[in-house]
Nucleic acid binder design. Structure first.
Lengths: 222, 222
DNA sequence: ACTTTAACGGCACTGCGTGCCGCAAGACAA
DNA sequence: TTGTCTTGCGGCACGCAGTGCCGTTAAAGT
């Protein structure tokens, strides 16, 4: 039995990680978050309690373990962008990259979503995690917005992009995370661009309104 | 000595609360957050450890104890608004109300700000708290935005308002929280209106645009 | 002066998170 | 095969956060 549990080089660490996440989601869903101890999760996954903390920093991390990976993806998009790309296009590309973390395993994402929005501790954890994205976006936006009011503009655009990302993701997950809905998920997210002063050349409110009317007229008359 | 510590009806509960907050801020600043136990805080404030948890829900709450009060203020503004007020004006009024929680004791706010942005645990806690405001704003905005894309618009405007609020507050605190700077603090916050659709000065233009959109949508959808 | 109420301190308990150590298993060399 | 080295795991013990419970005490009410 010890030998069976020790055969990690065959299964690999990633497999143990998945088992722990699955056990955590199952137990949190069935018994409730507060009623589930880390001992329960570890035992259910067939490992020791100490091993859980070798894979996750805390109890909440067992639910959203891909957080750093998402941040790294966004940072990668910003780092590898060529200088000529419009800011809004770059920001949208960075945001869309994060969707893959959820579309990789839609069913698991749906279960995590349900848990995250039911358990206050997980909800607050999620808020803090989302804010890490917001800060990352805002920081890169700030570096690209050299003009006056750059701080305010970067903060507003960064917060808006992250908020739109969550709205789109939430709608998709609430609909059961259908594979056919990924396109509309991304389209919904991109809708944020029309609500923001991110388009270069559109500086005044009057210009934005005029452009909005123009867009609507074009989409209305195909 | 016991009698001295028990004289609570004279000092009042609010006084004990302030002593606990002051002790927590002092100790967190001097020794560090992780190096300070609740026993330390309670002893420094002259009360028992158990009493700390009668005033605050958790260790982090000793730093930002006015959170529920701020949420209640915002909700109150939304609840007592008359129907004719433009949405953006209402949202700005609600946001400005929260500033009072910081302008009441500027020096304490500066110290809390420094701690909040140095200690990761407090930073995440702050993010979760800010998100409570964001959700509250978004919910009320959603109720006032009946048209299409209401979810996305409410999310973007709500997130933007909260983000601008934080930018303004942060600048003011970083400048040492001068009493003379409160006016510019509010003015900075109001700057968000010019970056968003819904500027109260352009209500009639927006209304006309909405009407145009409605006509276009009716003519476009068979 | 007596009873009631409310707040406090102390105690004990659960559970998270961490440091430490011994151990078992695979990798590598002789 | 045999010995050594490295890696990952389990177990143990510890500190501390947070909670339930209870005895006590001071203040309010009668």
């Amino acid at each position: 039995m010890t030998a069976a549990r020790r055969g990690r080089s065959v299964e690999g660490r990633a497999e143990v990680r998945r088992e722990l996440v699955a056990a955590a989601v199952d137990l949190f869903t069935d018994r409730g978050y507060d009623e589930t101890t880390i001992d329960d999760i570890a035992t259910s996954a067939g490992v020791g309690r100490r091993t859980f903390f070798r894979y996750f920093r805390s109890k909440e991390d067992g639910i959203s373990p891909d957080h750093e990976a998402g941040l790294a993806r966004v940072a990668e998009v910003f780092a590898t962008a060529h200088a000529g790309e419009p800011t809004m296009s770059l920001v949208l590309r960075a945001g869309e990259t994060v969707f893959e973390l959820y579309t990789d395993d839609p069913q698991l994402s749906v279960r995590r979503f349900a848990l995250t929005h039911r358990v206050p501790a997980l909800r607050d954890r999620e808020s803090a995690g989302v804010d890490h994205y917001r800060r990352l976006f805002t920081r890169h936006l700030r570096a690209r917005l050299g003009r006056a009011d750059g701080d305010l503009r970067a903060a507003v655009i960064g917060a808006s992009v992250v908020a739109a990302h969550n709205v789109a993701l939430r709608e998709w997950l609430a609909a059961g995370a259908p594979a056919a809905g990924v396109a509309s998920l991304i389209a919904r997210f991109r809708g944020v661009a029309e609500l923001l002063p991110g388009d270069p050349g559109l500086t005044t409110v009057a210009d934005r309104l005029e452009a909005a009317v123009g867009r609507l007229e074009r989409t209305a008359t195909p």
